[in-house]
């Protein structure tokens, strides 16, 4: 198969993609992506407030991908363990898109959690965050379910997500985050 690279380029150009990555998500990779994005945000001379918001949300999105790599068993092939990430900026709005495989049995739980977060007002999100922070069990990796609440709180937007069935074992989970100025 020959990929039409111009078509690919054109789509990325039209969506003003600043950075994208597909593959295995490692700690070193995240360090590099964050460094690149930080210098890009500096070059764009974003207000410190926006820069911090974008950076913070980016950290949560990328670390979500990182922590959920392990959920897909290591014996799975590289394709299944792989994830995708893109960040772009159109008309003063940053868009972060992530995609990763998820085990079918975990879809309903995650879907419910995201839907519940989307029902909450700004004030309710603050209370929910504090409740999970204070009472929630901490997972071994330290995620503890705060990431999505934090993203919803910082962006002030509903979480826009989708699950596409892949096969009998996996679905593909995608998340589209908007950060407006």
């Amino acid at each position: 198969m020959m990929l039409d690279i111009y078509d690919f380029y054109d789509k990325m150009e039209r969506n003003n993609i600043m950075l994208s990555f597909k593959g295995d998500i490692t700690s070193e990779l995240l360090t590099s992506i964050l460094q690149i994005m930080e210098s890009k945000l500096d070059n764009l001379q974003e207000e410190p407030k926006i820069k911090k918001k974008v950076y913070n949300v980016l950290v949560e999105c990328l670390q979500n991908l990182y922590h959920h790599m392990d959920e897909v068993a290591p014996e799975q092939n590289d394709v299944i363990r792989s994830a995708i990430f893109m960040i772009g900026k159109i008309d003063n709005q940053y868009n972060i898109v992530t995609g990763n495989y998820i085990r079918k049995e975990n879809v309903e739980g995650l879907k419910k959690r995201l839907e519940d977060i989307n029902l909450l007002s700004k004030e309710e999100l603050k209370e929910y965050y504090k409740a999970v922070l204070n009472n929630g069990e901490m997972s071994m990796k330290g995620g503890g379910g705060l990431g999505m609440i934090d993203i919803a709180r910082k962006t002030g937007e509903k979480l826009n997500f989708n699950f596409s069935p892949v096969d009998d074992k996996f679905s593909f989970f995608s998340l589209n985050i908007k950060i407006s100025q």
Binding site: N56, K141, L146
Partner: peptide, 13 residues
Amino acid sequence: LEYFNTSSSKCIL
């Protein structure tokens, strides 16, 4: 702190 992630927020608590 300039930035902290949600994973750190529990440890800070």
